[in-house]
Amino acid sequence: KAKLLVLLYAFVATDADTICIGYHANNSTDTVDTILEKNVAVTHSVNLLEDSHNGKLCKLKGIAPLQLGKCNITGWLLGNPECDSLLPARSWSYIVETPNSENGACYPGDLIDYEELREQLSSVSSLERFEIFPKESSWPNHTFNGVTVSCSHRGKSSFYRNLLWLTKKGDSYPKLTNSYVNNKGKEVLVLWGVHHPSSSDEQQSLYSNGNAYVSVASSNYNRRFTPEIAARPKVRDQHGRMNYYWTLLEPGDTIIFEATGNLIAPWYAFALSRGFESGIITSNASMHECNTKCQTPQGAINSNLPFQNIHPVTIGECPKYVRSTKLRMVTGLRNIPSIQYRGLFGAIAGFIEGGWTGMIDGWYGYHHQNEQGSGYAADQKSTQNAINGITNKVNSVIEKMNTQFTAVGKEFNNLEKRMENLNKKVDDGFLDIWTYNAELLVLLENERTLDFHDLNVKNLYEKVKSQLKNNAKEIGNGCFEFYHKCDNECMESVRNGTYDYPKYSEESKLNR
């Protein structure tokens, strides 16, 4: 008799109507990190870190770059004969040098303040090359056809396309004075040089004057150069050297050249137009028929994500570079809930034993079982409120962090190594801060989002509990077992918050 009662009780308990509160689960393989956990499985997430590029040089917003090819900045601007293909260059979106560009200054020497000139050019998007001192009329008392084997072109001695090597005419090199007034309405880049012979005999042979000088002056520039005559090792078949100089001439300003020898005179100059998204990159990537809004030396990035880990040097509207390998923000729920887990921000989770793959029309909802059958029903209101809140948060985070910009490298010469090392340390410090901030932001927001979901499920549970009161009992896994019969209409009233407690209280009292 006792065995019969136990079996009867078990049958009745199993047959009781139930309603459970749960949440969506799926077959997603997404994982995120939080402050407290690593690799948390979630139903949905968004990636904030771009880690792919196309490996190509592309047009930037429809404008092609200027590819210097086998030449570098120095060779292009001075007019190395091997860089003749660059003479027609007028406009570009950015400038590309190759790491091993070999054609710079063909006659050995240095372009002074080269690093600063590169910085200036990094904001130039177009130029006009014009004859600042016409070759045939500007130097009537001097020979202007100086050439050298060091600047050979097609097997013949030649010289820079933008400079003139002035030497004596006959047996004399009379003092020369020439000036140019900038009437271009924009900055003009003027380049010139000073020749330093290897011996007094060479000085006399070329310029006749043993104590020659070169003077260059404008409103913002004033220097006097004296040739340094000295024996030097042979470089590119030359014992002599040429140093090259430049200045930016403001609109309306005048530049005056005065010399008694050794002047490498300007022939062509450049009127410059600035462009905020221009820059110089060093890259071996090849040019393709493609378009982008962000270019790196590795390749083009076409992404609206706020961060990238491809390269710190970028041109155009680019994500911020960070050292992170993963920045994924959760938008959905835990896919593998932890039992009795309390989140960092106070939300209680884990009283549900598992997510439901059968509930596909919402994030949170119900599963019921009664004599009429069983089924899932999503709670659309709480789901939609959660979707709206999380979507707004993700968009806000992306908008705040998605300050796209150009980031170019800084140039230092060989004598500025300590400054370069200090600059690298400062840049590394800023990069570490950006990386830390980005990672911390994602970790915190992921923790908040998961706790937010847990709290929403808990609130749904409490909503049902407050309606049923003692007409049902909690069975410990997020479910309630009714003390009365609850048909589909009754189940719907529980879900929509209109459950009639008094209607079922007498039946429940008897069954309790």
Score class of each variant (00 low, 15 high):
residue 187 E to T: 12
residue 140 P to E: 13
residue 43 T to V: 13
residue 262 N to K: 04
residue 10 A to M: 09
residue 252 G to N: 03
residue 189 L to V: 11
residue 151 C to K: 11
residue 115 E to I: 01
residue 34 T to S: 15
residue 187 E to V: 12
residue 43 T to Q: 07
residue 109 G to D: 05
residue 44 H to K: 01
residue 232 R to A: 09
residue 105 A to W: 00
residue 77 L to H: 04
residue 96 V to H: 09
residue 210 G to I: 09
residue 157 S to T: 15
residue 115 E to V: 05
residue 97 E to C: 03
residue 176 L to E: 01
residue 264 I to D: 11
residue 227 P to I: 15
residue 100 N to H: 05
residue 249 L to N: 00
residue 201 D to A: 10
residue 251 P to E: 14
residue 84 D to I: 02
residue 79 G to L: 02
residue 168 K to F: 06
residue 46 V to D: 01
residue 89 A to T: 15
residue 192 W to F: 15
residue 252 G to H: 13
residue 169 K to T: 11
residue 133 F to T: 03
residue 258 E to R: 12
residue 142 H to S: 14
residue 83 C to A: 03
residue 212 A to W: 00
residue 2 A to T: 08
residue 3 K to L: 12
residue 282 T to W: 01
residue 147 V to I: 15
residue 121 L to A: 05
residue 220 N to Y: 11
residue 166 L to Q: 01
residue 87 L to K: 13
residue 264 I to V: 15
residue 225 F to G: 00
residue 140 P to K: 04
residue 132 I to S: 01
residue 138 S to N: 09
residue 130 F to V: 12
residue 239 H to T: 13
residue 174 P to D: 13
residue 196 H to E: 08
residue 197 P to A: 09
residue 137 S to N: 15
residue 61 K to L: 03
residue 189 L to G: 01
residue 235 V to T: 09
residue 28 S to P: 00
residue 237 D to L: 05
residue 173 Y to F: 13
residue 5 L to F: 14
residue 235 V to R: 10
residue 240 G to M: 11
residue 8 L to R: 08
residue 214 V to Q: 09
residue 218 S to D: 12
residue 26 N to Y: 05
residue 8 L to F: 13
residue 241 R to C: 03
residue 98 T to G: 10
residue 3 K to C: 14
residue 3 K to S: 11
residue 263 L to F: 08
residue 72 N to E: 12
residue 196 H to M: 13
residue 32 V to T: 01
residue 93 S to L: 01
residue 223 R to T: 09
residue 227 P to C: 07
residue 98 T to V: 09
residue 173 Y to V: 01
residue 151 C to T: 07
residue 57 L to S: 06
residue 117 L to Q: 10
residue 189 L to H: 05
residue 101 S to Y: 00
residue 221 Y to T: 10
residue 156 K to V: 10
residue 185 G to F: 00
residue 79 G to S: 05
residue 33 D to M: 11
residue 89 A to N: 09
residue 94 Y to P: 05
residue 249 L to D: 02
residue 38 K to A: 05
residue 50 E to C: 08
residue 269 A to T: 02
residue 112 I to C: 04
residue 275 G to Q: 12
residue 218 S to N: 04
residue 91 S to H: 14
residue 261 G to E: 13
residue 244 Y to M: 11
residue 228 E to R: 09
residue 16 A to G: 14
residue 235 V to F: 14
residue 267 W to I: 09
residue 213 Y to D: 03
residue 265 A to L: 07
residue 221 Y to K: 02
residue 26 N to H: 09
residue 171 D to V: 12
residue 96 V to F: 03
residue 28 S to H: 11
residue 233 P to E: 09
residue 226 T to Y: 13
residue 124 V to M: 12
residue 16 A to F: 06
residue 168 K to H: 11
residue 86 L to V: 10
residue 72 N to G: 13
residue 62 G to Y: 05
residue 57 L to Q: 09
residue 248 L to H: 00
residue 177 T to M: 06
residue 15 D to F: 04
residue 83 C to D: 06
residue 130 F to N: 06
residue 11 F to S: 15
residue 86 L to I: 15
residue 3 K to V: 12
residue 212 A to H: 14
residue 173 Y to Q: 03
residue 245 Y to S: 00
residue 36 L to F: 10
residue 80 N to A: 09
residue 276 F to C: 00
residue 275 G to K: 11
residue 251 P to F: 07
residue 263 L to A: 03
residue 170 G to W: 02
residue 147 V to H: 11
residue 269 A to M: 09
residue 201 D to F: 08
residue 110 D to H: 06
residue 120 Q to Y: 11
residue 41 A to S: 00
residue 195 H to F: 07
residue 33 D to S: 02
residue 229 I to T: 10
residue 273 S to G: 05
residue 192 W to A: 01
residue 2 A to N: 14
residue 136 E to D: 14
residue 104 G to M: 09
residue 123 S to G: 14
residue 55 G to F: 06
residue 105 A to P: 15
residue 39 N to D: 08
residue 244 Y to R: 10
residue 199 S to A: 08
residue 36 L to A: 09
residue 213 Y to P: 04
residue 3 K to I: 12
residue 139 W to A: 04
residue 108 P to L: 12
residue 245 Y to L: 14
residue 162 N to D: 06
residue 4 L to E: 09
residue 206 L to F: 06
residue 123 S to D: 12
residue 245 Y to P: 01
residue 260 T to M: 07
residue 100 N to G: 14
residue 165 W to E: 05
residue 169 K to Y: 14
residue 224 R to M: 07
residue 175 K to S: 12
residue 119 E to H: 06
residue 138 S to Q: 14
residue 253 D to S: 14
residue 250 E to F: 12
residue 28 S to A: 14
residue 21 I to T: 06
residue 116 E to W: 12
residue 211 N to V: 13
residue 36 L to Q: 09
residue 247 T to Y: 13
residue 250 E to M: 02
residue 150 S to C: 09
residue 264 I to H: 05
residue 123 S to F: 09
residue 50 E to S: 03
residue 19 I to V: 09
residue 226 T to P: 00
residue 229 I to F: 12
residue 243 N to H: 15
residue 181 V to W: 15
residue 66 L to G: 01
residue 230 A to V: 15
residue 83 C to V: 11
residue 78 L to C: 04
residue 60 L to C: 04
residue 57 L to T: 04
residue 1 K to W: 03
residue 177 T to Y: 13
residue 137 S to D: 02
residue 123 S to C: 05
residue 65 P to A: 15
residue 38 K to E: 09
residue 119 E to F: 08
residue 240 G to E: 12
residue 223 R to K: 13
residue 182 N to A: 01
residue 41 A to H: 06
residue 232 R to P: 02
residue 229 I to V: 15
residue 204 Q to R: 01
residue 105 A to Y: 00
residue 228 E to I: 05
residue 24 H to C: 06
residue 271 A to S: 15
residue 274 R to P: 10
residue 170 G to Y: 11
residue 141 N to Q: 12
residue 128 E to I: 07
residue 112 I to A: 15
residue 188 V to F: 05
residue 22 G to M: 05
residue 18 T to F: 02
residue 21 I to W: 02
residue 153 H to N: 00
residue 112 I to Q: 14
residue 157 S to H: 11
residue 64 A to Y: 07
residue 4 L to I: 14
residue 77 L to Y: 01
residue 47 N to M: 08
residue 29 T to C: 00
residue 13 A to C: 14
residue 196 H to W: 04
residue 79 G to W: 08
residue 66 L to T: 11
residue 54 N to L: 02
residue 229 I to M: 12
residue 50 E to R: 08
residue 60 L to H: 01
residue 247 T to G: 00
residue 30 D to K: 12
residue 158 S to R: 02
residue 102 E to L: 12
residue 146 G to V: 09
residue 95 I to A: 01
residue 5 L to A: 08
residue 166 L to G: 00
residue 112 I to S: 15
residue 231 A to Y: 14
residue 194 V to T: 04
residue 46 V to G: 07
residue 177 T to G: 09
residue 82 E to F: 09
residue 208 S to Q: 00
residue 208 S to L: 11
residue 77 L to I: 01
residue 172 S to T: 14
residue 198 S to A: 07
residue 160 Y to K: 01
residue 268 Y to N: 11
residue 96 V to M: 07
residue 178 N to R: 06
residue 261 G to D: 08
residue 278 S to P: 00
residue 139 W to K: 00
residue 168 K to G: 14
residue 13 A to M: 12
residue 179 S to E: 14
residue 97 E to V: 12
residue 85 S to I: 14
residue 21 I to V: 15
residue 32 V to Q: 06
residue 25 A to G: 00
residue 274 R to H: 13
residue 182 N to L: 00
residue 211 N to E: 15
residue 53 H to N: 00
residue 271 A to Y: 09
residue 228 E to P: 03
residue 77 L to N: 04
residue 110 D to R: 09
residue 28 S to D: 00
residue 259 A to T: 09
residue 19 I to K: 15
residue 139 W to R: 00
residue 95 I to P: 03
residue 175 K to T: 14
residue 135 K to L: 13
residue 89 A to S: 12
residue 216 V to F: 06
residue 192 W to I: 00
residue 165 W to Q: 04
residue 133 F to E: 05
residue 85 S to A: 13
residue 122 S to D: 02
residue 106 C to H: 05
residue 231 A to D: 06
residue 109 G to C: 11
residue 93 S to I: 04
residue 246 W to K: 04
residue 281 I to T: 04
residue 279 G to R: 07
residue 261 G to I: 01
residue 267 W to L: 13
residue 265 A to E: 02
residue 125 S to A: 10
residue 277 E to A: 14
residue 235 V to M: 13
residue 21 I to E: 04
residue 14 T to C: 15
residue 241 R to S: 03
residue 252 G to D: 01
residue 133 F to P: 00
residue 229 I to S: 08
residue 148 T to H: 02
residue 251 P to L: 01
residue 175 K to V: 12
residue 265 A to R: 01
residue 103 N to F: 14
